[in-house]
């Protein structure tokens, strides 16, 4: 069994909400991430899914310290990453990198590809100019871009090529862990497939550990080993790809999966969906008890009152669901 490289414990991201200028009441908080724990084994891809606003990006950003966690721990190879400061932090940072959705916004339009790739290397490593160039070329090749791309600027590339540049930049410091936040959501189907295959290849080649955030369940199914389903800042179900897609136990997981359209008219027209009423409630005043009860087709009185915890399914600690009514056998 591969060693655990990431261990997240009871992580919380609460944003303070500033109400109107003249409102004096108690300051409110928005609980974007509200007590999340999970582990990642080396070389594993965890897919993180859930509706818009459920806290996926906040979780990803808190892990790499782009936003401050309110509380909780992120252990990376046994080191408490969130507690690191100064030099120790600078030394550890390269090991954990992020890829974003929008390859347009995340590249400086005034820098050439060479400079974009050289920047992180210069900040973290002492290399001769020859070594620097070799390294840059190696990573350019890894993402299948030609050497002549080095002299060009971001606007000279298509969306898919720009995402390749972002991937090369994220990998050039040889991170152990990559958080990819909707990396293919802005891309067309044909380009999306190219980037997904590239990410999968590279992940295997470099034995990367990855958190892959997406609202697209078909994409997540294709790329992930394990899946975590989030709802209003909490994980409601987590398990292997096989288990989650073959026999989802949480009604929310079931509803999400059944809502994904299938590109086959015969199948798609004869599907029975798990109906979901309404939309995700505001995380400022989340519902009581199980926060999903307001939309759950199976909710009973108890669900309104008591908060469920993650429990093992089929006595398998790698498959957990948080639902009072779920079948745990």
């Amino acid at each position: 069994m591969n060693p655990t490289v990431v261990k997240i414990s009871d992580l919380k991201v609460h944003y303070p909400i500033r109400k109107g200028f003249f409102s004096f009441g108690k300051p409110q908080t928005l609980k974007a991430v509200d007590g999340i724990s999970f582990e990642l084994k080396e070389g594993e891809i965890l897919g993180l899914v859930g509706e818009s606003g459920c806290g996926k990006s906040s979780l990803g950003r808190a892990i790499i310290r782009l936003v401050d966690a309110t509380s909780g721990k992120v252990d990376i190879q046994g080191i408490d990453f969130l507690a690191l400061k100064g030099k120790a932090l600078k030394a550890k940072r390269p090991q954990i990198q992020m890829i974003f959705q929008d390859p347009y916004a995340s590249l400086d339009p005034r820098m050439t590809v060479f400079d974009i790739l050289a920047e992180p290397v210069k900040a973290h490593m002492k290399l001769s100019s020859k070594e620097l160039e070799e390294r840059i070329k190696k990573y350019l090749e890894l993402v299948n871009l030609p050497v002549k791309a080095l002299k060009k600027y971001p606007h000279e590339f298509s969306g898919g090529q720009r995402q390749r540049i972002c991937i090369a930049r994220a990998l050039i410091l040889e991170p152990k862990i990559v958080v990819a936040d909707e990396p293919v959501s802005a891309l067309d189907v044909s380009v999306q497939a190219q980037i997904l295959n590239l990410l999968k290849d590279i992940q295997q080649k470099l034995n990367l550990t990855m958190i892959f955030i997406s609202h697209n369940l078909s994409v997540v199914k294709y790329i992930s080993d394990r899946i975590a389903v989030m709802y209003l800042g909490k994980i409601v179900e987590i398990g292997s790809r096989q288990d989650i897609f073959a026999s989802p136990r949480h009604p929310y997981t079931q509803a999400l999966i059944s809502a994904v359209p299938i590109p086959d008219p015969k199948t798609e027209r004869n599907r029975v969906r798990v109906p979901l009423i309404g939309e995700i409630p505001s995380p400022i005043n989340p519902p009581s008890g199980c926060t999903f009860h307001t939309r759950c087709p199976f909710a009973v009185a108890h669900c309104k009152e008591a908060i469920p915890r993650l429990e093992n399914v089929a006595q398998n600690p790698a498959w957990q669901v948080s639902c009072w009514e779920a079948n745990l056998v």
Binding site: A193, S218, I257, V260, P263
Partner: peptide, 24 residues
Amino acid sequence: RALLKSTPRIDAIQTQLPVIAGTI
């Protein structure tokens, strides 16, 4: 055909997505 094949789908296990090289 290529467009359909390169689409990830929730009702299948796909080990490798057939891609369409290049861009529009």
